[in-house]
Design a binder for these strands. Structure first.
Lengths: 323, 323
DNA sequence: CTGAAAGCGCTAACAC
DNA sequence: GTGTTAGCGCTTTCAG
């Protein structure tokens, strides 16, 4: 910048003015500065600018894994909203490890991001308190965090309730539930929805038909149930990865899965799902965040997004004894 | 930092020393500083540090769309390598628009990223020249850029050749090629591979069996071919999205697709594909980049990753006249 | 309309 | 061991 000033025969501040489109510079001076900038290949150092301005025009996004289509949908939506606000996105995958989440968040904070969108891996967010107090707004997405901040979730319990009720309406009385580890908020919520659906239908809850754990183990869990005393005639799967794991076992049960996925309609039978909308989730979280970044105060918002049942065949299969 | 120094009764530099784990500070002073840091909730401002140090410990990644599994695989791999080098990733989706690619890259540069990984949307990268000269290394991934920089691609032509030859070996003499827009490097390369495979097999190239264009139009293009004079008995699809589009048409042709995808094995018949490895692509690009960031000079590297044919059924169907 | 000086938060270089 | 000084590249006063 100094070089440009010298080359154009003006003061530093004048170059700054031109670069920032500030008014009050004569057209000819502007011209001279612009040509010097061109000639020297000058580009403003954003880091220095940030140091003065305080705002970095960047936000931090912590998700579980970019390579998972659910989270990459969120990512893309966040990115688009951020770009609309002239902001960049620093993102990182926590891999469901609270420690890594924490490290990523703190790293982002030390780079003075203007705000954070976090899909919480852990439930303890005390480490965030000082940052929030320091004025860095945060929004929790997909799951609530352990802090009173803006939160966007899906109607997990309601969605599971709808899906399980759908199976029950098609004549099933023994519906298995295969969910992710119970420590994950969404998994626990969906299990609640399952239990409530059984209760609402006046069906007993058989604990041998419930299995919570990582997707890799879902196939084996189902096999155990099927070889048990009173096997299920239908299964509700608690997320997309479990749905796929169960499909790979090649069973022929009625089935409804939480999360839509590409090609669900091309399988035979088509897979009936309870769909969430990751893009909407990301968009909403980002908009909430930028509202805060722009200075909005007020109590923490809690947004719950609806789910949608998409019937494609697998959820409409009747139990063997009811043709 | 100044506050911490005052609170601990030491000079600024001493705080800096403690924060940076520099040697030469007595244990008790360290203790005093640490407790002051704790008390005041101090966290170093990375922007200021960057301004001094010159390195930002961040890299920029421009891909086409994070929401596409191929690119999100790349993303994740880049992120992991970057984290291993203590670096963060700024990422953005170009949406295949050269202008947006350019804007993202220049924005990243003005934030002084240490390096760039670019999946080129356009082919003209003159705008990058000054940045490269200014010492910001760049690596092109998936497609070569219009500049002499490190590049990682897949063996597009070879992969297509293998896939098409596979169909020919199963008795097909009329193999259609449905590729993405010819302006996209990978699409053009794969078309070359297709043509070469026909030539190598002594088969004539029938231009009515070739269609290049956006995935949305692939279904219609195939329908046109099938209702033509001499319809194809097999089809080679030029990328994952086209493969899916073609599957949705519900045809019953023999088929091999470029790009593997989840559930390809669960469809009936299973979909035979030529698989690339996005994770390996991202990893290689990132490693190449960090080698440059760490000071390696020397001529631009060109890495070509192999592809792999995975037979699952659809590519082994024989033509109707050869049972 | 333009410029000079101060300082954002930090670290490198050199005292003490 | 510790402190002082200068300056990274920019913007924000406040004077011309």
């Amino acid at each position: 910048m100094k070089d440009v000033a010298v080359a154009a025969g003006v003061a530093l501040k004048t170059v700054s003015r031109v670069v920032n489109d500030e008014r009050g510079v004569s057209p000819e001076t502007t011209e001279r500065v612009l040509s010097a900038i061109q000639r020297l290949g000058y580009r403003r150092n954003e880091s220095a600018r940030v140091l003065r301005a305080g705002r970095t025009a960047s936000i931090g996004l912590v998700i579980e894994d970019v390579a998972d289509p659910f989270y990459s949908g969120i990512s893309r939506a966040v990115e688009d909203v951020a770009l609309g606000h002239g902001s960049l996105v620093l993102s990182g995958s926590s891999g469901e490890q609270p420690l890594r989440e924490r490290e990523l968040v703190l790293t982002f904070c030390s780079r003075r991001v203007d705000g954070l969108i976090i899909v919480p891996a852990g439930s303890d967010h005390d480490y965030l308190r000082p940052e929030l107090d320091a004025g860095i707004p945060a929004v929790f997405a997909d799951r609530p965090g352990g802090l009173d901040a803006d939160t966007v979730t899906c109607d997990n319990a309601g969605g599971a309730h709808t899906g399980v009720t759908h199976l029950i309406r098609h004549g099933h009385r023994r519906v298995a539930f295969l969910g992710d580890s119970a420590s994950i908020f969404t998994a626990a919520e969906r299990l609640h929805g399952y239990r409530r659906a059984l209760r609402d239908a006046g069906l007993p809850a058989d604990e041998t038909l419930i299995s919570m754990g990582p997707p890799e183990r879902a196939g084996a869990a189902l096999a155990r149930m099927l070889s048990g005393q009173a096997p299920p005639t239908a299964v509700f799967t608690g997320n997309g990865r479990i749905t796929v794991a169960v499909l790979r076992t090649g069973h022929r049960l009625a089935m409804v899965g939480f999360d839509d996925f590409e090609l669900a309609d091309l399988l035979v039978p088509g897979v009936t799902v309870v769909a969430q909308d990751p893009v909407e989730l990301g968009r909403t979280a980002a908009e909430l965040l930028f509202r805060r970044v722009l200075g909005e105060t007020g109590p923490a918002a809690r947004v719950e997004l609806p789910t949608r049942l998409i019937a494609r065949g697998s959820g409409e299969l009747r139990p063997p004894d009811l043709p």
